[in-house]
Design a binder for these strands. Structure first.
Lengths: 107, 107
DNA sequence: AGTCTATTTTAGCTTATCCTAAATTAGATG
DNA sequence: CATCTAATTTAGGATAAGCTAAAATAGACT
């Protein structure tokens, strides 16, 4: 195994390294949200959020479902599985309920 | 828990997201190497490597030991523990022997 | 078709960061 | 002390990436 092989296997890690993208993932971790609903949670433009969604989509970390005019997003638990432990380490714990906590409504 | 708390807890992930730093970690995963020896494995300047070592050091991902003129580095297994699973996922397997494989000498 | 809403895409700016080259510090040795 | 080697630090340049603003696309509805 060469040093190159160690270096860059498609770099999902670099994608998860950005706070904004982790925030998006937290939002749609256990609920499906339309692009506009996701964007509404941030102080950046709709376009900027859409760009990040594209990155996450192409990395297979989220899925989209067309619903009329809307694009409904949710985390792809399958694709994110190998990285779940790290995200959990960063988010302290109980990752499955973070989205709820973010919205302020406790179960 | 607010959206901010989810975002940036000191961002070790961003540090590990860079290929060069992972290459360095691989090299000193199970052997102690001097800064110059580490630099010798790359096509970048000694100074550049030293800068990356500093980043890794301040993130508590590696340790230094002064030995005369030399600074001998090695991975801090303690500090890197929470991220070990992801690195393993990226490096396929048997992370403990990657450094050896990189040097071309199989056990 | 025309329009309205939802979303994506493009162009360009700005900030962050990895790198080089040169200057500086630290320790060993003559 | 002078000097040599090892390593760090600083200043500056180039590239990458997130953002804004505006243009383009997609679907629903009249």
């Amino acid at each position: 195994m060469g040093l190159e092989a160690v270096a860059a296997p498609m770099d999902t890690l670099a994608i998860l390294a950005k706070p904004r993208r982790r925030q998006i993932l937290a939002l749609i971790w256990d609920q499906e949200l339309a692009a506009g609903e996701i964007a509404g949670n941030f102080d950046i433009t709709f376009g900027a959020v859409s760009q990040q969604l594209k990155v996450l989509r192409e990395a297979d970390l989220i899925t989209v479902r067309k619903d009329g005019n809307h694009r409904r997003y949710r985390v792809n638990k399958q694709g994110i599985a190998p990285y779940r432990a790290v995200l959990e380490a960063m988010w302290t714990s109980t990752l499955d309920h973070i989205a709820a906590a973010v919205e302020g409504d406790e179960t």
